[in-house]
Structures are given as structure tokens and as C-alpha cells.
Design a binder for these strands. Structure first.
Length: 437
RNA sequence: CGGGGUGUAGCUCAGCCUGGUAGAGCACCGGCUUUGGGAGCCGGGGGCCGGAGGUUCGAAUCCUCUCGCCCCGACCA
């Protein structure tokens, strides 16, 4: 992509209403613009990151056997009256009336809709288990939106819902998501720690929040420091196998969010206890037959009797992750994208567009990088070197290739790793080989 | 929803206390010169000072009401 033909409105100065670092950088890097409190438009660079994250989530969901659907943003109020939540939800739910004076709402979540779909179509235990997900915009009319996209009113969320015949099946569905979430966040370059969460009226041990650590996290978290060394990426997972050992391993060490932590009864020795700030990026829980009972979602079991299906629901805050990743990965010059979610792999900087040799070298490099399947953002604007360096550091692409008259004379280009600042002078061929590898 | 703050050019802000008809830097447009970490000079465009009402000869400035946005708390993916 040629930068002069892209839409990347970067800001040199920090907009005054952005306080935390991810919000400031998302505005400055031209990723989003605010439409209203907690509601954002996504500009090209931000959208690319959002799509990257979404795709990783999608692939990891598919790998578990979950199936993607797409439910609407606007839902009829009647379904929520069935479950009893229309009155319970309060002002967080955005209520709308259509032209026929029917009560509608902008969905804050989708248990009612999915339960309605499943109860119509799933009649026999033979049709179970089932796990359906979608990635869709939600709206919760937060009293106080803040932190940019991390606590918006409108947000993109992956949510899915599992349906099983019995508790054992539901538990396996839950474990699948538990393991899947570990893999999903690890692929994004994040260290996410599962923590016991409040389970509400159902009780039991089947609710976990997945929290990434960042100094600016919104809540305090406490965990055994050895948890940071756990790794899920070094093993192949068979989602049909018993996943309980993996879950047991990850839950063997203490980890608790603020509201679940009691310093007096904490089993971890002080020197082993990590106190940090965290951002919740995922939440999974089992809720049994809460909705299937209320909404009459039953199947005929092997014994010929009807039973309410066992359900669980699982959420990942896709748009929140964009901010969360920045919180976890930045420096004082800008964003440092993990490779897996970076909007482009390489930023190519032409330091002197008025120089024929420099242009020719850049054009050649640009064409060859693209031919190698590498996503490149090519800064061929007629701007000062300093401005280009500053913008490229700000938008945080993993690699920079800097082409200027100095290097051209020596037959080299400069390859810089954004995260470390390390640079190497390489021939164009060596540079391409390095970036492709 | 309680408490606090803020609204002046695209952005960051000054001017307000002590009323006299709007400014700076950056950005933008034109020209020339520059060119390895947000360049220089010259010229230019852009603002019903969030909105409504009031006081006054006169309001960005004082008063009242209202709306937006931000921060702290309670609440939350």
C-alpha cells in the first residue's frame, strides 16, 4: 500500500480527551475516530487490526468444531420478556421502538436469540452437542464509557453458546473453550491468565475470566508468578480428547481478580504472589438450564424423555483487544504490534523522494516484498525524514525498511525491528530474505 | 447515577478575573529553498468563541438555563 494513496490521518499532538495510552495512540495513529461517547468509527489502519484479531478468533473457534453464524444487532423485546431479562437488564440495554410501535432492542448479548434458534431446530439428543458462535457488534449503554475502545458502549464481540445433553457434556464444551481461549490469546502475542470468576446463581467452578496483564489495566489481579511461565503453544490439541488435565494444569496455581481475592486467605506465599493490573479480554461460563428452562429449549433424550439442554456461553472482546494489545505493547514513541495482529508487516520508508536512485531502489524493494507475499506500507510521501520516522514508529509496524541516499551509495538498506530498535544494514536481497523468513 | 472539570481555527492552547467586536504554535493552500529523527523563509485561506435566553451603548468575557465531552467513584465484555 502506498501511503500517499492510503487514508492514515496521524496526529502529532495528543487529543485532549484521550487519557490512557491505547486511546491516545489509536487516535494519533489514525486507527479510530470518536463518533460519540464510547462509539467509534474504524479507519483503515484500525480496521485492519480489528480484522486480524477477528480472524485469529475465528480460526481458533473453528478448530474446536464451533460453527459460525451471524445474528442481528436489533432484537425483538419479546424474547427477552420470555427469559425475564427485559426487566432485569436495566438502562444498560438500549431500547428502541420501531414504526409499528413494537419494542425492540440493540442486543447487549445473544442468549435469548440463540436459544430461540436452537429450540426451533434441535429436537433430539442426537443433534447435540452443538456450539455456535458469531462475531457481531453489541451495544451496552454504559453509564460511563471510558478508555477508548476498551470500554466503549458499542463493541465487537465474539460470543458463542454451547448446547449439551447433560452436565458432563457441558463441562467438556466448557473445557474446549478454556483451552481454545488460551491458544487464541497466545497467538496474538498476549499472556492471558485464566482466573476464577463469580459464577452467579449457578455456582460451581465453571466460570473464568481471561485477563491480560498491563500496567494500565482496569482491575487489580493476583496470581502465582509461575503462571507467567505456562505455555499452550508448544502442544497440539485434540479437542475431542479429555481436556480436563490441561484445564487442571492451568488452574492448579492461584489466580484471582480483585473481587475474588482475599489477602487473608490467599494460599500463595508473599514472595510468589504477583500483584498486577489486568484487562479482561475473555469470559467463559456455564449456566446450565437457566435459559433453556425459561424458554423451553428441550430435546428428547435417549430414554425418550424430554430434558432441557445444558448451556454455556463464551465471550471475547474483539474490539477491546485492539486497545488491550496496545496497552500491553507500546513505548513512548508509539505502538509496537505483535507480528500476528500487525496491520502491515513492513513499513518501507523512502527518505528522499526527489532522488531518482532512491525512488528506483524503493520501487524495486516494494515490488519484491509484495511479490514475496509480504504486506508493505510504503511511505513515498514528500515529507521530511523526521516526520516519516515518527509516523512509522507511531503506527508500530513490526519491521521498517529505511531507504536513503546514504545506504543507496553503499548498496544497502536499513532494516529496523520496531520492538527493539535494532537495525541492520543489508543488501536489498538480504533484507527481503530476512523479512520473508 | 453521585462528585469534579472542560467546551475559542483541523489539533494543542492563550484571551475571560478587570466587557470595547479574536490570537499563537502546529496542520492546510501557493511560491522558493531544503532533505537520515516531526525543516526554513515569504505570502494566503480558515472561527455566528458548544447552543438558547438575559444584563449592557457594546458580551468569547458577566448572569440563567441547556447540550456535548473528559476525569474520580459505584457498575461492567
Amino acid at each position: 500500500m502506498r501511503l500517499s494513496r492510503y487514508f492514515l490521518p496521524t496526529l502529532k499532538e495528543t487529543p485532549s480527551d484521550a487519557q490512557i495510552v491505547s486511546h491516545r495512540y489509536m487516535l494519533r495513529a489514525g486507527m479510530v475516530r470518536q463518533a460519540s461517547a464510547g462509539i467509534y468509527s474504524w479507519l483503515p489502519l484500525g480496521l485492519r487490526v480489528l480484522r486480524r484479531i477477528e480472524q485469529i478468533v475465528r480460526e481458533e473457534q473453528d478448530a474446536t468444531g464451533a460453527r459460525e453464524i451471524l445474528m442481528p444487532t436489533i432484537q425483538p423485546a419479546d424474547l427477552w420478556r420470555e427469559s425475564g431479562r427485559y426487566d432485569d437488564y436495566g438502562k444498560e440495554m438500549l431500547r428502541i421502538t420501531d414504526r409499528h410501535d413494537r419494542d425492540m432492542l440493540y442486543g447487549p448479548t445473544n442468549e435469548e436469540l440463540i436459544t430461540d434458534i436452537v429450540r426451533r431446530e434441535i429436537k433430539s439428543y442426537r443433534d447435540l452437542p452443538q456450539n455456535l458462535y458469531h462475531i457481531q457488534w453489541k451495544f451496552r449503554d454504559e453509564v460511563r464509557p471510558r478508555f477508548g475502545v476498551m470500554r466503549g458502549r458499542e463493541f465487537l464481540m465474539k460470543d458463542n453458546y454451547s448446547f449439551d445433553l447433560n452436565y458432563e457434556g457441558a463441562r467438556h464444551s466448557y473445557n474446549k473453550m478454556f483451552v481454545s481461549y488460551l491458544r487464541t490469546f497466545a497467538r496474538m502475542g498476549l499472556k492471558a491468565i485464566p482466573m476464577r470468576a463469580e459464577t452467579g446463581p449457578i455456582g460451581g467452578d465453571l466460570s473464568h475470566e481471561f485477563i491480560i496483564l498491563a500496567d494500565t489495566g482496569e482491575s487489580a489481579v493476583y496470581c502465582h508468578k509461575d503462571l507467567l511461565g505456562f505455555d499452550i503453544t508448544d502442544q497440539d490439541i485434540d479437542f475431542d480428547a479429555d481436556l480436563q488435565p490441561i484445564v487442571d494444569h492451568w488452574t492448579s496455581l492461584y489466580a484471582a481478580a480483585d473481587e475474588m481475592h482475599d489477602p487473608d486467605s490467599c494460599p500463595v506465599a508473599k514472595e510468589d504472589l504477583l500483584e498486577a493490573r489486568g484487562i479482561e479480554v475473555g469470559h467463559i461460563f456455564y449456566f446450565g438450564t437457566k435459559y433453556s428452562d425459561a424458554m423451553n429449549a428441550k430435546v428428547t433424550g435417549p430414554d425418550g424423555n424430554e430434558v432441557a439442554v445444558e448451556m454455556g456461553s463464551y465471550g471475547i472482546g474483539v474490539s477491546r483487544l485492539v486497545g488491550g494489545i496496545i496497552e500491553a505493547s507500546h513505548d513512548d514513541r508509539g505502538i509496537i504490534w505483535p507480528d500476528a495482529v500487525a496491520p502491515f508487516h513492513v513499513g518501507l520508508i523512502n527518505l528522499r523522494v526527489s532522488d531518482d536512485a532512491c525512488n528506483a531502489a524503493c520501487e524495486d524493494m516494494y515490488a519484491k516484498l509484495m511479490a514475496a507475499g509480504i504486506e508493505v506500507l510504503y511511505d513515498e510521501r514528500d515529507a521530511s525524514a523526521g516526520a516519516k520516522f515518527a509516523d512509522m514508529d507511531l503506527i508500530g509496524l513490526p519491521w521498517q525498511v529505511i531507504v536513503g541516499p546514504k545506504g543507496i551509495g553503499a548498496g544497502t538498506v536499513e532494516v529496523k525491528r520496531r520492538a527493539t530498535g535494532e537495525t541492520e544494514n543489508l543488501s536489498p536481497e538480504q533484507a527481503i530474505a530476512k523479512l520473508a523468513g
